[in-house]
Design a protein around this nucleic acid. Sequence first.
DNA 1: GAAAGTTGCTAAATCGAGTTAGCAAACCCT
DNA 2: AGGGTTTGCTAACTCGATTTAGCAACTTTC
Lengths: 344, 344
Amino acid sequence: MARGEKRPVTVHTLASHVGVSPAAVSTVLANRHEERRLAPATVERIRQAVRELGYVPNVAARRLRAHDPDVRHVELGILTSYEAPLFLISRALRELQRTVDQRTSPERRYSVSIDMYHAGRLREMPGLLNASRFNGVVITNTLPEDDAFLKATTLPYAVVVQGRRLANYCCVLETPGAGGRQAAEILLGRGCRQPAVVTPRLLTETTADRADAFAAAVRDLTGQGAVRVTASDFTPQAGSDALRAHLQAHPGCDGLFAVTDTLALGAFQALKAVGRRVPEDVAVVGVGDHEHAGYFDPPLTCVGPEYGTVVAEIMALLFNLMSRRRVNPTEVFVPPAVSHRRSA
Amino acid sequence: MARGEKRPVTVHTLASHVGVSPAAVSTVLANRHEERRLAPATVERIRQAVRELGYVPNVAARRLRAHDPDVRHVELGILTSYEAPLFLISRALRELQRTVDQRTSPERRYSVSIDMYHAGRLREMPGLLNASRFNGVVITNTLPEDDAFLKATTLPYAVVVQGRRLANYCCVLETPGAGGRQAAEILLGRGCRQPAVVTPRLLTETTADRADAFAAAVRDLTGQGAVRVTASDFTPQAGSDALRAHLQAHPGCDGLFAVTDTLALGAFQALKAVGRRVPEDVAVVGVGDHEHAGYFDPPLTCVGPEYGTVVAEIMALLFNLMSRRRVNPTEVFVPPAVSHRRSA
DNA sequence: GAAAGTTGCTAAATCGAGTTAGCAAACCCT
DNA sequence: AGGGTTTGCTAACTCGATTTAGCAACTTTC
């Protein structure tokens, strides 16, 4: 009985509980009992059972049954973590939508969805391993644990990874080292003497690379290291708090590289609060991952990759993988496109 | 033949094309041909056919077959339009994730996904009508066409609509009229004489209500109307352009209500470009739909509803609907929480 | 009182893929 | 030559829901 009770309620369970056939239950569930002339009393008994037993329909079964056999449905997903801000994927989403709209035809339809995993627990996402959820995915915002999982298992369908290098997958990422170095060049080129880099505490491969490349370039060019400012996370609030503390300890700070734009946004606030002008007193460089970086005050100078190129490459790889025109893992590097705006 | 060729390729198609049984094809697709001792030549022929015929697996069928019968899978979706900015739903997403994490148990798992429709074409979303995709959804960012569609058909599963009033669904929205009126009171209270309201060209029910309530309140309180500034859409760029034009025509403008925060962000830029100070020369009020409104410069005073309350109400309704504790449509109004910041 | 119609339900097939049990044929060994 | 083993594959069932065709039993009609 303990065993029996655990099994989820199906149409069949409901049917035998009420003492009718599954067909009758299904009729009621679809609200077609009038046209199929079920007795009102029976309908009520079935409804009662549905309520009592807490029936939850199996959407996979419904979909299999309901789909039009002349139309192929292709399911695409953008996989990101709950913890990453959604705006990070809005450009990828828009491009995927455009691509998909082009390829939609009467016999081939696409669905695009954004699916979230808990950062570091990608492996727990249902349907990933057994290929029962997607025909193709773009995976982004992974943590090292997720990367380890991906390295260990090659998923048996079209997968493109953004921002990481994994030998067994197609990957698209900014040219390693390039962004950080350019940020350093911009700041030092303006005459900054005490440049710092702000990072969140938890670093992804990309943010770590940006910070390291920045530090290395500063050391190369000046012989001195760059100060590292650690924020608790990547929210503006965290950036603001971290920078306030930093300015107390290093009042001479005159240049800042933020590895995410939200940190730069918080930094702006902290700088203005203590009366420093951007860029006159402190120059700031971001990476262009925020849609509205050009509307910050002052507009944020950015050294990130051109996201348009990144997402275009991702889509090309994804659709090539799905049509099996490309089979081998590839790495695509997108160089940073410097957006000179007012902040540096 | 034309008919036959149109039908999508299934395992069965592949099998008869190669001259083997579906079981053999399935074995190869799952990469289990070694342990099941298929002849290498056969494997190669099957692989070839998969490539040639462009086979796309049916994920619904896989899911039905692969799922663990002891675990009930509940599929939840947040439905938004491609055209609406993603950050609008980040709060709802976070709350849904929290709720779902609490309710997850060994015999009940939840999947959360964000699914997009083209604004005005919600009806085309696959699986919406036949309930073959979701066990429960939150629908948001609809256009009037979508609202009309929803009014016409009551979807047979748990649905909560955000920001619209539809008699046949559970709806959660800001108290009608409240935000616009408060914005008017704030601006007039500061002594503004020529208040204006910026809206995108395409109005949703919510943005229209905000603008109308604002105009009505201004008329009530001053006897004069409020000027309406129309931006091409709701991007900062559009807001900036619209405001530049408005300032040319109405140099005396001293107060602004933006029905979305992104428009306010663009307005800030236009105002600063022509040397107006915020709030000294022009006071600005937004609605708090942008995560970072508090980090704009100056921080944006907002009159929108408390999103925390909105999403909490949505989740309560959604789960009550799914457990059938509530069956009747309900309207929940969330009053605006005024965030007084520097911009007004 | 037989034909025709209505009421209220069910048996069985179906969707597409994966798995299990098992069957021939070929091969090996005494 | 007979028994056992390996090789290479297939028939048939399963997952959960929906639909179609159709069957009893009862009622109405002439």
